[in-house]
Amino acid sequence: MFERITENTFDEIFPLLESAFPVTELRIREDQRKLLQEDCYRLYGVRKDGIFAAVFATWEIEDFLYIEHFAVKEEFRNGGYGGNLLDRLLEEKGRPMVLEVEVPQDDMTRRRIGFYERHGLVYNDYPYLQPPMRKGQGMLPLRFMTKPTAVDEKTYERYKKLIYKIVYKYEGE
């Protein structure tokens, strides 16, 4: 079901990432491709009717799973498909999970947070700044969602430090 993306299938899946994320939340194509060489990085695609219908970009860091990207192709949304995939991924990986979401400011960001809450994730209100994904960009204010529970400040700081170091290669803050 979860197809590990390789150099051979990367160009087939990248357009789904581009269509689902703003440039502030996605690396340029070649930088994203280079991540395939990282030991703890996994890019997975899920096919439906022969085409990639969903994508997960994950990092297996120490004792937790960090989901950097999760997207479902527009025509497969709102029918439970994405939620089922998320549940299966979390069950298969069997470890605490962390992902970043926008600060809830409008209906869309609240709906996105609600989707994750329906799948057992908990919103953590610690201030978090995502390091730039591309040169020339600034820090992006986001929040963590975690599963199976909210995290205490010490755990939040540990997750943040590891994500900054391993995912973003960022030494600041």
Rank of each mutant, 00 (worst) to 15 (best):
E92Q: 15
N124H: 10
R33T: 06
I163P: 14
K165A: 13
E171L: 14
L35H: 14
E153M: 10
P127R: 07
L17M: 02
Q32P: 09
G83V: 00
F76I: 07
E102K: 06
G50Y: 01
Y66R: 01
N124R: 06
R33S: 07
V167S: 08
P104M: 05
Q32T: 07
E75K: 11
K34D: 08
D39L: 13
T155S: 12
L162W: 12
F14A: 09
F2G: 12
E100S: 06
F52L: 04
K169W: 03
F21C: 09
I61N: 05
V101H: 11
G80Q: 00
R110D: 09
K169R: 04
K34Q: 08
R158F: 07
K160L: 04
Y128G: 10
K135E: 15
E25V: 01
F14E: 03
R112L: 10
Y66T: 04
G83M: 05
P141A: 07
L17R: 03
R27H: 00
A71G: 05
D39Y: 03
Q32C: 11
L121A: 10
F2C: 15
I13E: 02
I5C: 05
K34R: 10
M133G: 06
K147P: 02
Q130I: 01
I51R: 04
V101L: 13
T24R: 15
E62V: 13
E75W: 05
R29A: 07
L90D: 09
E100Q: 04
P141N: 12
R88L: 04
L162E: 10
L140N: 05
D106Q: 07
T58R: 06
A150P: 09
R112T: 07
R27W: 00
F70C: 09
N8M: 05
V98Y: 09
M145Y: 12
L35K: 08
L140Y: 10
I163Y: 05
I13S: 03
F21E: 02
R4D: 02
R143L: 01
P127G: 14
P148N: 01
F70W: 03
E60C: 05
L26C: 00
A150E: 14
L99E: 03
P127A: 05
Q130A: 06
R77T: 03
Q130F: 11
E38M: 13
V103F: 06
I61H: 03
L16D: 12
G79P: 01
L65Q: 03
V101I: 11
Q32M: 07
M145H: 13
Q137A: 11
V55D: 04
Y126I: 15
E157Q: 11
P127I: 14
V55C: 15
G79M: 10
E38D: 05
K161W: 08
R95K: 15
L17Q: 12
Y44V: 05
R42G: 03
A20C: 08
P22H: 04
D106S: 01
K169A: 06
Y164G: 05
L43Q: 07
E60P: 00
G94A: 12
F144K: 15
R95V: 15
M139F: 14
D39P: 06
V55K: 01
P131M: 02
L85T: 00
G50A: 13
Y156P: 02
M97A: 14
I163G: 12
Y170Q: 00
L99V: 07
I67S: 05
D87P: 00
